[in-house]
Design a protein around this nucleic acid. Structure first.
Length: 594
RNA sequence: GCACCCAUAGCUCAGAUGGAUAGAGCAUCGGUCUUCUAAACCGACGGUCACAGGUUCGAAUCCUGUUGGGUGCGCCA
């Protein structure tokens, strides 16, 4: 709004002023409230005095957007001129024309997902995927050029464990992979190996000598496998390549279903050696030091754990070593200015070290490296653990969700809709439910994934938003069947006063609330991008959709005529386009009907 | 032991930069479909914002401490 015209030398920019606006406690007080506390100091007057002056200035200003302004204590309560405001906002939204953000020259890379090959992909991984993808979409919507990056864990101890079981404990016949979901199948082999090792470990600790012997033998074997892989021994490397491919193919399917695309793919196997070379280089430069036979760096800034190890005593690199090499590759090959890492909160200390170390290595971009931590996903019976058998793999998640959604809601359309339509809608709603569930909670809150709640739940959910979108589309469809369509001249804009005359017929409180809610769309997307918090958009969208559903319940579009009909058609069209845009920013599909 | 995170209605959670009477969803109870999708809408019930100090015109929000829960802490990733 145009408040900048009013507080004189208060030192507030238009954006500042807009940011201070609030909603009054009750709608009858006004549409917006401007608190004057902040101005008291600079203007050297009491807030109520400022509020009174401001209210007078607004009233006398003659801005058609301001229907009335009244001071109430330290607040100025402003009622929006609905006609002019609607004329300003609705045609743009209805055209799908959104505020173009400033052109940003900061190239951002967002690294997320980072699954390990040879391991299963489960609900926990979905939070990372949804969060990372939403950040990519949000930052792009806010004008940034963004590179979506993935980093696959295709080397390391877990591979050796998996191959140990695969080669030593399976018969030739058992080693034949199934036709589909080979990655998942391989993940189960890894889980079997991992479980067996921890059982032996426990037994050995309890004094079981046989278990201790078996454990030692297994460790020797995994070390041998690892060594043969590191030396690129052809036979072992072939097994690695074949099995790794199974995992990567499965990940690709998961990303496709989830509608996630990457622009850059990195693999740990690719930064393994560069990492070690980098250790030599910076050891020579004196940036790294030797300690107890290992190589690392003392980052005294991190008082509770200053040593950051980069090369083990046995000469091998670590996860951290690869992260440094990867960062260099990102800076030098992709010329990025800012680097975001979406990784769970347990790695916070690790990334503090990585960024500090990069800085000491002389990379300027280290200041623009940022870890976006998030809390874990748990199940109703506690943290996920294969040993407890309470892991929900991706495929089970997808299949159970689509099946439940189909049975509970879509079966009624069978025969009316094609089977393919039903299936596509079930997929869309399942994905929307998952994404909303994963994004709606703040990143520092744990998420308890309860399948029953996520599929059955009414009220605040992804399905609620999608259903609202479908209903709004339906309104327009049904009206169109009766020849009631939006006048293109209204949508195309131009004649502001003419349009304002039409939108002025929106006088119902539900119409006002919906229009008001729509004014927050762009601001919310920008705020969410700036804070890297998709949950902000979720909260906004839920309230927006609630406003629409109230409108839908009490204001009929189809039975309206003349200017009111046109105004409502414009309102619904604008809502539909605006909602579709915001859902897209979260990666939530917008089904035409459901 | 050190570090980080969390604590708001019976349950799950919103409450950005301190601001008017702390809000939703679920659950419970009661209403609203001969009219655009009832996966919706309306109402009722429900709170010592973990606790104790402090900062100030004003604190769920900021600071300190306490309690309870979670996570991380040199040769894993």
């Amino acid at each position: 709004m145009l408040h900048a015209a009013l507080p004189e030398a208060a030192g507030l920019s238009e954006d500042d002023a807009a940011g201070l606006l609030e909603r009054p406690p009750t709608p009858d007080m006004g549409d917006f409230a401007f608190p004057c506390f902040r101005l008291a100091r600079t203007l050297r007057k009491g807030p109520p005095v400022i509020a009174a002056e401001l209210a007078r200035a607004l009233t006398e200003g003659g801005d058609p957007l301001v229907e009335s302004a009244a001071a109430l204590g330290p607040y100025v309560n402003i009622r929006l001129g609905l006609g002019p405001a609607g004329a300003l906002l609705l045609p743009k939204l209805a055209r799908g024309q959104f505020e173009t953000p400033p052109v940003r020259d900061q190239r951002i890379m967002v690294e997320f997902s980072q699954p390990n090959t040879h391991k299963a992909f489960h609900v926990g991984h979905m939070r990372n995927l949804c969060l990372g993808d939403a950040l990519v979409r949000l930052l792009r919507a806010d004008g940034y050029p963004v590179i979506a990056a993935n980093y696959f864990g295709d080397v390391g101890a877990h591979i050796a464990k998996c191959l140990w079981w695969f080669l030593d404990h399976l018969t030739e016949e058992q080693r034949q992979p199934p036709a589909r979901h080979r990655g998942e199948w391989l993940g189960q082999i890894y889980a079997a190996a991992s479980d067996q090792l921890s059982v032996w470990e426990e037994q050995a600790e309890a004094g079981d000598e046989q278990a201790a012997a078996r454990l030692a033998a297994a460790k020797a074997r995994t070390t041998e496998i690892l060594h043969r892989l590191e030396t690129r021994e052809p036979e072992m490397t072939a097994v690695w390549e074949r099995t790794r491919r199974w995992s990567l193919d499965e990940f690709a399917e998961i990303y496709k279903w989830s509608d996630v695309e990457f622009d850059a793919l990195f693999y740990e196997s690719q930064v393994d050696e560069p990492g070690l070379r980098l250790v030599d280089e910076f050891l020579e430069k004196g940036v790294f030091t030797v300690s107890e036979g290992a190589v690392g760096i003392f980052n005294e800034e991190i008082k509770h754990m200053p040593f950051f190890m980069l090369r083990k005593r046995d000469g091998n690199g670590l996860y951290a070593t690869k992260d440094l090499a990867l960062a260099r590759m990102k800076f030098e090959h992709h010329s990025i200015d800012r680097s975001i890492y979406v990784v769970d909160v347990r790695q916070s200390d690790h990334f503090k070290h990585v960024f500090l170390t990069l800085k000491k290595m002389g990379f300027q971009q280290a200041d623009q490296c940022q870890h976006v931590p998030y809390e874990m996903v748990e199940l109703p019976d506690g943290p996920m653990a294969t040993r407890k058998g309470n892991v929900i793999l991706f495929r089970e998640l997808r299949e159970r969700m689509t099946a439940t959604i189909t049975a509970n809601y879509l079966e009624q359309f069978r025969g009316d809709w094609s089977d393919a339509d039903i299936e596509a809608t079930a997929d869309a709603v399942a994905l929307g439910s998952i994404r909303y569930g994963m994004l709606g909670r703040d990143v520092n809150q744990k998420i308890v994934f309860d399948m029953a709640e996520w599929t059955n739940r009414e009220g605040n959910s992804g399905a609620y938003l999608q259903y609202t979108f479908a209903r709004a589309g339906s309104v327009l469809r049904v009206c169109a069947e009766e020849g009631k369509i939006l006048d293109p001249a209204l949508r195309d804009g131009g004649d502001e006063r003419g349009i304002a005359a039409v939108t002025a017929s929106l006088v119902e409180p539900q119409e006002r609330e919906l229009l008001l809610a729509l004014t927050g769309l762009e601001r919310t997307i920008h705020a969410a991008a700036a804070q890297l918090r998709p949950s902000v958009v979720c909260v906004y969208l839920y309230n927006l959709c609630k406003a629409f559903n109230r409108f839908h319940y009490s204001c009929r579009v189809k039975s309206a005529e003349g200017e009111l009909l046109q105004a409502r058609l414009l309102l619904v069209t604008a809502f539909t386009r605006g909602l579709a845009r915001a859902l897209d920013v979260l990666g939530i599909p917008a089904p035409e009907r459901m």
